[in-house]
Structure formats: structure tokens, C-alpha cells
């Protein structure tokens, strides 16, 4: 519960990607509940190519010094040594993330072996339950990071939440088949069929660029949002960050959303999913 609890505290909030202490302060000033420290935001990783790795500890330390809110950092999928280093640095959350280049093509990190809590991405219910069985304390729908395009986030949220609704209708015999199709442990499948929700919180990531995007995914059922490139790749990051925070709190109030969406300048340039060379969401097994 102590590990899961921090995610409960982050609900209804916005976690922002930052690459240095200056951006971290802007994020905190705008009302971020946490920052994700990384070397390059996903849209730059996508543009530059090459191997994307854990950030430099010096940069993570500088961000920890700069803000009072929780600091998260990313490790490569399966790279438990990076995760051990992040834990030793005292980061508050590790994101085992498909945005970085995977280090292991078959195995994710055994997250039960750590004190620090982990967040993992998922595109569907089976993937979410596999990550939870490995010890993830928080699931985020993956979306397609660095595109400014919300369509994949919506697909993944709808897939996870739709299957959660459907699985509650299954009888006890059908749950064995669900477990087989989801490639997930039966006890977890039985648990979510009973409760109709994941045993850990579910946030949304990947492609959120506007206050309306934040409202959309919150209305679909996300419990908080991660914004990556969407803030610091836009024209004017500080007001956009604050507007997305307000939109996440008041996601069901269109009048207020209309007010906060005004005059924010240009959002980050978006990408069509069909034109992408690399689909980050396909990473993870």
C-alpha cells in the first residue's frame, strides 16, 4: 500500500516531462503534481534516433534539488541495473518506459525486487495485467509518445476500459479463456472480473497536447495524465501547462475548458501515426 499510495496522491493531476531544472520549476509553478526527468522529450528522441537511455544522474539530482514535488525518471524496458541506479538516487517513481530503447526483448524488470514504485505502459488489458503481475504500482495507457496525436491514447484507453467492462460479464468458466487470451495470470483476471477495475490506478500518456485532450482522456476514464512533449514543445509552455492542469481538475466542465483553452499559442506540431518509422507503443511484451 505504501508503494501504491503515491499514485493515489497523484490522481487528478498532471505529470510533466522536463529535461532540466528550469523546466522543472516551470512545471511546478504551473501546478504539476510530479515531474518526469529525462534527457530528451519523446519528440526529440523520435527525431534524433539512436539509442535512448536512462538520464544522467547529475541532471536528475539537479531536478530533485529544484522542486518539492515528486520526481520520476525512466529506465529502459528490462534494464534493472538502470532501475537500481535510479532507486539509489532516491527518485520517487521509476517509469519502465517504451520511450527509451528496450534493453531486453523478452523480460521486463522484476519490480517486486524494488522499494521504489514503478509505472509501466500498456496498450491493452493483458499487457496491463502482466505489468501488474511483475509488480507495477501504476499503469499508464501508452498512446504514441512524441506525436502530439491523441488517437493512440484513446485507442489504448478504450481497449483497456472496454475489456474491463466486458470481463465483468464473463462467468467463472469463461475467465479461464479470458486469462488465456489476455496472456495474464488467472488470479488477477478473476480479481478484475470481480471489481471491474485494475488493482492499481490507471493514468494516460502519449499524445496529450491541449486542455481538450486532457479532458477527453479523463472523461474516458483515466485518473491522471502524463504530458511529455506537449508542453515544452509548444509555443508558450507555462500558460499551456497551467491550462492543462486546470483542464484535468475540471475535465467535465466545458465552460471552464473553453475559458482555459483560449490564447495559448500554437500547440506542438503533430504527427500522423501512419507516417511514423518507429511505433514506440509496440515495445513491451
Amino acid at each position: 500500500m505504501v508503494k501504491r499510495g503515491l499514485a493515489e496522491m497523484l490522481k487528478g493531476g498532471v505529470i510533466m516531462d522536463v529535461v532540466d531544472a528550469r523546466q522543472a520549476r516551470i512545471a511546478e509553478d504551473a501546478g504539476a503534481t510530479a515531474v518526469m526527468a529525462l534527457e530528451r522529450v519523446p519528440s526529440d528522441i523520435r527525431r534524433d534516433g539512436g539509442v535512448a537511455r536512462m538520464s544522467d544522474p547529475e541532471m536528475i539530482e539537479a531536478i530533485k534539488e529544484a522542486v518539492t514535488i515528486p520526481v520520476m525518471a525512466k529506465a529502459r524496458i528490462g534494464h534493472f541495473a538502470e532501475a537500481q541506479i535510479l532507486e539509489a538516487l532516491g527518485v520517487d517513481y521509476v517509469d519502465e518506459s517504451e520511450v527509451l530503447t528496450p534493453a531486453d526483448e523478452a523480460h521486463h524488470i522484476d519490480k517486486w525486487a524494488f522499494t521504489v514504485p514503478f509505472v509501466c505502459g500498456a496498450t491493452n488489458l493483458g499487457e496491463a495485467l502482466r505489468r501488474i503481475s511483475e509488480g507495477a504500482c501504476l499503469i499508464r495507457s501508452k498512446g504514441e509518445a512524441g506525436t502530439g496525436n491523441i488517437v493512440e491514447a484513446v485507442r489504448h484507453l478504450r481497449s483497456i476500459l472496454g475489456d474491463l467492462r466486458r470481463i465483468t460479464q464473463a462467468d467463472s468458466a469463461e475467465l479461464f479463456d479470458w486469462a488465456k487470451r489476455l496472456q495474464s495470470p488467472l488470479p488477477l483476471v478473476q480479481e478484475v472480473a470481480e471489481t471491474g477495475r485494475l488493482p492499481v490506478p490507471m493514468f494516460c500518456a502519449g499524445g496529450i497536447a491541449t486542455p481538450a485532450d486532457a479532458s477527453l482522456v479523463m472523461q474516458l476514464g483515466a485518473e491522471a495524465v502524463f504530458v511529455g512533449s506537449g508542453i515544452f514543445k509548444s509555443d508558450d509552455p507555462a500558460p499551456r501547462a497551467r491550462a492543462i492542469v486546470e483542464a484535468t481538475t475540471n475535465f467535465a466542465d466545458p465552460t471552464l475548458l473553453a475559458k482555459v483553452s483560449r490564447g495559448l499559442g500554437d500547440a506542438m506540431p503533430g504527427l500522423e501515426i501512419d507516417t511514423l518509422e518507429t511505433r514506440l507503443a509496440d515495445r513491451g511484451w
Partner: peptide, 15 residues
Amino acid sequence: PGGESTTMSMLLDIA
């Protein structure tokens, strides 16, 4: 509730 006091404090003012 629990959460981030910096965020809540800002939202108290905005609201």
C-alpha cells in the same frame, strides 16, 4: 485529501 499541496494550493486560488 492527500495529494500535492503545491498543486492544490494553486488550484484553490484559480477556483
